[in-house]
Write a protein that binds this DNA or RNA. Structure first.
Length: 444
DNA sequence: GGGTAGATACATA
DNA sequence: TTCCATATGTATCTACCC
């Protein structure tokens, strides 16, 4: 795929952003990150050789245990639809295929088709920047009903290979195809070929697959041969080690922009660096974080499906709604927005028979500074008027403010009725951060 | 000192 | 003309209570 010069794209993005309030806020956050990194480096400098040796030895034991217990006999397949929302739109309007197109609007692009990507247009890019990069870019409004329909069709295919497959999002799923392979005498690679063909036949949308001995590796691999391709990583310890060693840390699900920056400052750019730094990480990070880093660096991930949410249990942890708008400081207007959000959220909650007792109000000022304020009540509520009353109380304590976003989140649920029988609840499937059993780490 | 709540940050799609 | 979203979950730090 021919593409525009990355440096040029960067320059355009910078020129368009540099005077914005958003950019100033990013700079402010960057200062905080830099301060955290500096503190870590100072801590590191103070580490004695003896302390470091102690931590390294402790980590060596963990590494050995992880290596010894790694199960490489399973076959996992991670499916990722190619430019999914854009591809769905092209189904309805094939003329879009030959044009650069983004699903979203001037505020934000959800997805860009491959034609638009040639210009540097990416998902999660503000539309006005995308248009600058590609003046002829066509915007299409998102239509989630459409994407859900196509997604449901892909899931029917997935279920043929693993009835317990994990749907991570509308366009991504993880399957344990070990049993299917055994029963049909096929390899993971063959399953991937067949599944991709069936998905394409059924939906006329292409997807890419990663095949590997665990969920983490399959997920990483699924991104390495896009679009309409696949990568097979054999269940072989040496192959896994070689694959991981060269892998940039940012490719690990759970290591985002900030964690990458932090780890790079400590000297880790690849997973093998991460292993070499194990003693430092153990000394400087929480146990959860350092354990996560070494497991990921070794390519150790989940090999069996996570526990299903049992019937009658509350699957989700929270439900929220937020809206961005033109900066508003008028008190009455802000209170009205609060009421609308509360009502809309109450409707969503009613749909799932949820009652909650923690209300969190989220505010974003016109400077992009985010504040959250929460209360936990002694009783459960679900009515829009009740949610509104609590949210308003929190809001009034913060005013006056000029806001560009308001959101309300409810949590600490009490479920009135059971979910429909046989239906997986959403927990653990919506997010699918897929980092191999342990949870996403924060920075150090 | 452990549990709970609140605030904030980070990550993912 | 338009000028950086939304929904969800997890981790960590701090404060407070018993």
């Amino acid at each position: 795929m021919q593409s525009v010069d990355a440096a040029k794209v960067k320059q355009v993005v910078f020129e368009l952003s540099k005077d914005s309030a958003h950019f100033k806020n990013e700079e402010r956050k960057q200062v905080q990150t830099a301060a955290r990194i500096k503190k870590l480096q100072e801590q590191r400098a103070k580490l004695t050789a003896a302390e470091l040796a102690l931590h390294t030895r402790a980590m060596d034991a963990k590494v050995a245990a992880l290596r010894a217990s790694a199960d490489l006999t399973r076959t996992w397949l991670c499916v990722d639809m190619d430019a999914f929302f854009a591809a769905c739109e092209e189904l309805d309007n094939p003329t879009l295929k030959s044009k650069p197109m983004a699903v979203g609007g001037i505020g934000m692009c959800c997805t860009a088709n491959y034609e638009a990507r040639k210009y540097g247009v990416r998902s999660a890019m503000p539309g006005f920047i995308a248009r600058k990069l590609c003046p002829e870019l066509v915007f299409v409004k998102p239509c989630f009903e459409k994407y859900s329909r196509v997604s449901a069709a892909t899931r029917e295919v997935f279920a043929c290979y693993d009835p317990d497959f994990e749907a991570c999002s509308l366009d991504e799923a993880c399957l344990d195809v070990t049993d299917y392979c055994t029963e049909h005498g096929v390899t993971g690679g063959q399953v991937a070929e067949e599944l991709r063909a069936r998905v394409r036949e059924r939906t006329r949308v292409t997807c890419s697959c990663g095949v590997a001995p665990n969920r983490l590796l399959a997920k990483i691999a699924s991104d390495m041969n896009k679009p309409d391709g696949q990568i097979v990583l054999p269940g072989d310890a040496d192959a896994v080690a070689a694959f991981m060693a060269r892998l940039p840390i940012r490719k690990v699900p759970g290591i985002g922009k900030v964690t990458e920056q932090t780890l790079r400052a400590l000297g880790a750019g690849t997973c093998s660096d991460l292993l070499a730094l194990r003693g430092v990480l153990a000394a400087l990070c929480s146990t959860i974080s350092s354990d996560f880093f070494i497991a990921a660096a070794l390519g150790v991930g989940r090999t069996c499906h996570s526990e299903m949410v049992r019937e009658g249990e509350v699957g989700r942890k929270g439900i929220s709604m937020e809206r961005t708008f033109r900066p508003v400081s008028d008190r009455a207007e802000l209170e009205a927005k609060c009421g609308e959000l509360a009502e809309a959220l109450a409707e969503d909650m009613a749909r799932e028979s949820l009652r909650g007792r923690t209300i969190t109000l989220k505010l974003k000022t016109s400077n992009f500074e985010v504040r959250t304020r929460a209360v936990t009540l002694g009783h459960y509520i679900s009515a829009g008027a009740d949610i509104c009353a609590e949210a308003l109380r929190l809001l009034r304590m913060e005013l006056p403010l000029e806001l560009r976003l308001m959101g309300i989140r409810m949590s600490s649920f009490f479920q009135v009725t059971s979910p429909p029988p046989g239906q997986k609840t959403l927990s653990g499937f919506l997010q699918g951060s897929g980092n191999g059993g342990s949870r996403s780490p924060p920075g150090c």
